[in-house]
Every structure is written in C-alpha cells, then in structure tokens.
Design a protein around this nucleic acid. Structure first.
Lengths: 332, 332
DNA sequence: GGTCAGTCTGCAAACGATCCCGGGATGCGT
DNA sequence: ACGCATCCCGGGATCGTTTGCAGACTGACC
C-alpha cells in the first residue's frame, strides 16, 4: 500500500502538502494540488485510517449492538444503520449479544476505543448497567427510552391505538390481549397504549389472556386462551405470536376472520405469506436504524457529548396499521 | 481514557515495561509485572487499539460483506461470523451491498486498510472483479467457489441428492424443478446435483419448470407451471419459493402433499410456521459463518498470504434433509 | 575479586497521518 | 528600492503503542 510519503516523493512535494491537498484543498495552490492528486491517483493512495484515527482521536467508525441478528426486526434495524452509515462513509462494527444482557457492557467496552459512537438496540438490559457502560461515549438508543440519552423508537401507543380503533370500527367489543414478556420495554408500552385507547373508546372490554413467549409457540398457547375467553378478536404482541395463533385456531377449526379476528405487530415479511394474510402494524424498522445514525452523526458533528438539548432528543417514528385478511366483522 | 504512560507513572516504571508486562509477561520480573498489572487495573487501562494497529500493521479486526442482511440466510451467516469472531476477540465490520455486485469492490476497498481479513458472501458478483478487489487481503468466500481462494460452502450436490432420493423412495417419477436466477452460483450447483442424482437413479424424469425469482412471488408463478406439467412433486430453489408454491396450490385447490409434494431448500424459520410444514434441506448457515472465521483466523496466524495449501482450502459442510408434512406418496 | 552469562529495564525509533509554526517567495504600495 | 501583507510550502512535533538495542544489575564461578 502506498504512503503519503510515496505520493509526496512522486509529486515532488512534502508529506504535509500531500495531506493538505487532500483534506484542505484551499490551502494549497491549484497546480501543486493537481500534481498531488494525480500522483495519489497513480499510486492508488488512500490515507491510512488507522494512522488518521490515532492522530485525530476519531476513528470515523460506528458501532451497533443488537440482541439477535437472526431476529428479522433487528436484521432490519441493522440494515438501516448499515445503509445510512455507509452513505456517510462510516463503516460499522456489528455485535450480537445473543440475547444476553450481561454480555452487553463487555461488548460496549470492546467497542469503546474503536468507535466514535454506538447505536444500541437493547430491549432488556438494566438501566444502570447500560448507563455506566456508555458513560463516555455518544450513544443512541433504539426502541427504548432512557433518561438523558437520545433515542429513536416507534410511536407504539399510536400504532396500537390504530389497531383497537380498527377492531372497534368493525364492531368488536371483547378484545383479547396476548402480551409478550413482562420485561420488554416496548411490550409494556404497547399494553399501556392499549389500555388508554380502550379507555378513550369507552365501550370495549380488554381481556388480558396472559403473558406469552414472543414466538410462534407462544401464539399456540394464546390461541386456546382466546377461545376459552370467548373473545371476538385477539391482539398479539408481535407477528410471530399472531402466526402461532392463526395456526392453532385453524387446527381447532376456528376460522379467521369469521369467528375470530387476529392482529399482529411489526409486519415482518412472513405476515403476507400466510393465509389469511395478517393484519398488523408496520413499524419502520430500517427507518429506526437510519434515524439513529442520523442522530448519532449530528451529535458527532456538534462535538460536545454533554450537549443537553441533543442528549434529550427523543424521536418517535410513526407506525402504520396494515389491514389484510385476518380481521373482519365479529360473528353475529 | 488512561495511557500506557499514566500506568507507567503510577507503577513507577517506563512505558516499555508496561507494554511488556501486558504482552510479553515472561520478559519482566514477577514483582514489577504485579505492580504494573495493578496500576493498569486501577486506571482501567486498555491498550489503544488504534495505536496498536498502527504500530503492528494489524488491526485485529475482521470484515464481512453480505448482499442482504434482511435475508434470513445471510442474517444467519452474519450471526455465525459474529459469534466466532467475538469469541476470538475480533470485532467485525459488517457491510450490506444491497444486492448490488458493482458496489462490492468499493466496499472491499473501504475495508481494505481497516481489517486483517474479509469474509465474503457474494453469490452473484463477477469473478474477475472479485479477484482484483481482494488482491492483497486474506479473503474467505462463503457459499461460493473460486480458483485459488479458500471457501466455505454447503455440499449442495449431496443435499439435493437426498431430496431426490426421498421423493424417489416415496414413488415419485416425474419431478418438477423450479430453478432460481441463472446467475446464482449455488443455484447452478444444485441444478447440476439434481441432474446427476436423476442420472444415477435412472427411472426419474426431471421436468424443468423454468427459472423463477427466488422469493415468494417466484413460487406463485412456478406453481402454475407445476400443475400444467402434471408433475407429482416440485423441488424449489429455496424455501421462500416453496412457500409461494404452497400458497398458490392451496389457492387453486390442489392439496399438498396428497396431489403434489413440495420441497424447499435452506430450512428458514418460516418453514415450520406454515401448514403443511415444509419438507426442506437444512443448511448449517451459522456454521458457514463460524467455519469461515476459523479459516480466516488460522490463515492470519500462519501469516503468509500466499500459502498455497491454505489458499486452496475448500470446505464443504453437510446438508441435511428435514422431512416434514409437505411431501408424501404420489396420487395413484 | 574479577569476569561473564543472564536477566531486567529504559531509551528512542519507528508506524502514517495531521497540523502548528516559521520561512521563503510573491505582489503591492509608497 | 524597501516594507509589509499574503500565500504556499516544508520541518518537525505529535497521537499511543511496540520493540531493537544497550546499559545496569545480579549472581555465580573460577
């Protein structure tokens, strides 16, 4: 690989001039700049990012921490982060904590000296642990809220209100709720939103079917509860659970949406691959990642980590109800 | 952040000794080593990776390039790479080329100075372009073969042979083939394997239904061809296509597996979430990633890039037929 | 006690870039 | 012709670490 020194030699100038020709073009005369650029071109010169990082104290690199890359939700967030960072010329380190919150501080520590900032998608880990881990590093949270840290999340309250409004408009008055793990931050948020929406509507009863695992298997269990409780519609914590519910209902001869309507959350790809196609809430997952990077980069540009206004930044992206074939009017 | 200099001062030694105490413990006396280690502990000192990288000429970092992070296949590969690299203490840059082969050389170039080696999962890009892009950097290919580059792939020929053997054993003699994009390396490989297997079995006719998009939508189209050609079983390029086939057949009132058997490939999670559950071929996707990293790291340990034996390394991981409910005996 | 082998440690030079600082050249006005 | 401001450019320090080299010290042996 070619040096700044090599380029300088070929162009007949000093290394300082080479550096300036590339980073501060106005400080060098047009003719020499031309010579330097051509020499750099000929040698295929690219400034060594490591040396640059050492001198500047910035690595021009971002980090991303997710609980599970195989989870389509986080895969999309990752893709969004990746795309945005790439556009800005930032490579990004990706780490998968394998759903183990205790591993996160270590991962963050590993990143600390190698990145300029971190996007953190960590639905379950403890507040204090997190806060300590990210003490001296710009961090943006995804799908989670925390005092004095900037975050990007979906407006779940609104999304879930759209769901209940949809069901209410169809005529449903007894709606089952299949909740997710109690420890999930966004799960609690959705439940709150649901209760608030029910409150506003007045004449709809929320039947809490219980707390289930946020996977296909959890949905299988939830479906039986729904039937037992005699609800006319079920709102699931996420799409995977909703798919489990669909499968189990079909197995028991309960037809959807004629007998029971089912609504998911997230709009993962599979939602359109089943029949009936799933009514669900589309959350802008890659959008979350993109926005998080935008926030992080603007923070880095400003420079001071303790900028209060920035640290309090809370971004809420809109969710959108997608009506498909798994919801209909309740049976007479 | 604490320096080696800070640690040296606190321990009352020179920076050289600090460095040696951490990297070459035998070269320093037990007592001073103890002092240094304690001082380092107290200050929370970690050697600056950037400075280290500059001095050593190695970044202790890996790169991974995939065409699409939202594709479950590559999400799993990424997860495997991630897990293995993390265990070895290597952070990994992840880049998503967004299915655009022309973007790959640029991405690789961006990586070049920042990583010690690259795992490349690039099913479609041109050989020559690739070879040039990776000229001076250790690279391991995933799910793809190329002369003089080490690679890790699945034994597709064997996997597909298991599929055909299974169908043959059930009694199928007219088997439809829904191929993927012609440019896909592994697609061509599977087709070859299928033909070879048919040849060996002797009494089974392969009906090529055409080349379809490797998504749900491609399967919808393929299904109609299958019905038109009167085959009793269909082998799809991948699971998504198989799901499309299932959906379309159901829509047309063709029951699976009574009328037609359907087999996928990859064993993505969704394969178990549909009914009938999909018979498919499980490929060790995270295993591919893990093995690729193993190969890369051992290469880096050896040091010389032009080690012929290593460069020729071709790893073939076994595929496994998973029989579920979408295959059965053909109609009488 | 002097020599020598061996062990331990510090000095200083790298690695490759950036950037402060000062000097030379140039142009302009007087 | 001289002073002065302006513009370009090169020298060299710097970021934090590793490492070759040499000096200092210890202990042992003749």
């Amino acid at each position: 690989m070619a040096n700044a020194h090599d380029v300088a030699q070929l162009a007949g100038v000093s290394v300082s001039t080479v550096s300036r020709a590339l980073t501060a073009p106005t400080q060098v005369s047009a003719t020499t700049r031309e010579r330097v650029l051509e020499a750099a071109e000929r040698l295929g010169y690219t400034p060594n990012p490591t040396a640059r990082g050492l001198r500047l104290g910035r690595t021009h690199t971002l980090g991303l921490l997710v609980p599970d890359l195989e989870n389509p939700y986080f895969a999309s967030v990752t893709k969004g982060v990746q795309a945005r960072a790439r556009a800005a010329g930032y490579p990004v380190f990706v780490a998968d904590s394998e759903e183990d919150p205790t591993a996160e501080p270590g991962l963050v520590a590993q990143f600390a000296a190698r990145v300029d900032g971190i996007v953190l998608a960590s639905p379950r880990s403890d507040d204090e642990v997190l806060r300590k881990a990210v003490a001296h590093l710009p961090v943006v949270l995804v799908s989670r809220d925390m005092a004095d840290l900037p975050s990007v999340a979906v407006d779940d309250a609104d999304g879930i209100a759209q769901v209940l409004g949809h069901l209410h408009a169809l005529g449903h008055r007894r709606v089952g709720v299949a909740a997710g793990p109690a420890s999930s931050w966004s799960g609690a948020r959705r439940l709150d939103g649901l209760r608030a929406a029910a409150e506003r509507l007045g004449d709809v009863a929320l039947v809490e079917l219980g707390s289930f695992r946020p996977y296909f298997s959890g949905g299988l269990a939830a479906a039986d509860h729904a039937v037992a409780q005699g609800v006319t519609a079920v709102v699931a914590f996420n799409d995977l659970m909703a798919l489990g519910i669909l499968d189990r209902l079909r197995g028991r001869g309960v037809s959807v949406p004629q007998d029971i309507s089912v609504v998911g959350y997230d709009d993962v790809d599979v939602a359109t691959l089943v029949s009936p196609a799933l009514t669900t809430v589309r959350v802008p997952r890659t959008g979350l990642g993109r926005r998080a990077v935008d926030l992080l980069l603007s923070w880095l540009d400003v420079g001071h980590v303790d900028d209060q206004a920035l640290a309090r930044a809370r971004h809420r992206l809109p969710a959108e109800l997608v009506i498909r074939d798994s919801t209909g009017v309740p049976p007479a």
